[in-house]
């Protein structure tokens, strides 16, 4: 289903341009409800997503990041509805199986499939090998091998993008919510109102005040 009904992919005479998401791995992932997806095909292509990495027993930044996402999920759903999906990829896939992810998700209000007004929040598990491939393809790694191998020192970042417009950005999570929300809506949104908060009133012929 085209999540952007107003946007019709144009007929092109040249091959479609490359997209940043072309580099994302297309591995098999499973969410906290046991549903399986191909990461690139099913979750990225033509969609708006927020991606982070986590593991359920993390005592560091993960709980904070998850709390932030829980807080942002409501206004985000209000603004963009089902068009955006939050994807939390576990980087400890041996421990974080479906059950663990479901329990963890439940702590943050994602223990049940989202209703029609709320955006989906999937906690994803992939095989060890696929997790590594996926994590690297998304840029969640450190050049320093020691840091990279230590999952407790993983980056607390949000990678978010709108594949339709090929707009991607990344934000650290340990800033105030407003500073995350501003780029989220700017990158994920489709209209001036969604992106910049310019109301329809403002974009009409009326002079703005």
């Amino acid at each position: 289903m085209n999540p952007f009904p107003l946007w019709n992919p144009p007929e092109t005479k040249v091959p479609r341009r490359p997209k940043r998401s072309d580099l994302f791995a297309n591995v098999q992932v499973t969410n906290q409800f046991g549903d399986s997806f191909r990461f690139h095909e099913d979750l990225i292509q033509g969609k708006a997503v927020i991606i982070n990495t986590m593991f359920t027993v993390c005592r560091g930044s993960c709980p904070g990041t998850s709390e932030t996402l829980q807080r942002l999920r409501q206004p985000l759903s209000k603004l963009l509805g089902k068009r955006v999906t939050i994807l939390s990829l576990t980087i400890d896939p041996l421990v974080d199986r479906t059950v663990e992810l479901l329990n963890y998700a439940d702590n943050y209000g994602a223990g049940k499939p989202a209703d029609h007004k709320t955006c989906d929040w999937f906690f994803l598990n992939a095989s060890i090998e696929n997790t590594e491939i996926l994590r690297r393809s998304l840029g969640f790694y450190d050049l320093d091998n020691k840091v990279d191998q230590d999952i407790s020192r993983h980056a607390s970042l949000l990678l978010f993008g709108n594949d339709v417009y090929d707009r991607w950005s990344t934000s650290p999570t340990q800033v105030r919510d407003g500073l995350i929300f501003e780029p989220l809506r700017r990158i994920l949104g489709s209209t001036f109102e969604e992106r910049f908060g310019i109301s329809n009133q403002a974009t009409s012929k009326q002079p703005r005040s």
Binding site: L72, P75, R176, D177, G178, L179, F181, E182, R185, F196, G197, I198, S199, A202
Partner: peptide, 11 residues
């Protein structure tokens, strides 16, 4: 503009 979250009327 980062205040839009808490103050949606601030266009």
């Amino acid at each position: 503009v980062t205040d839009l979250l808490t103050n949606p009327s601030a266009i």
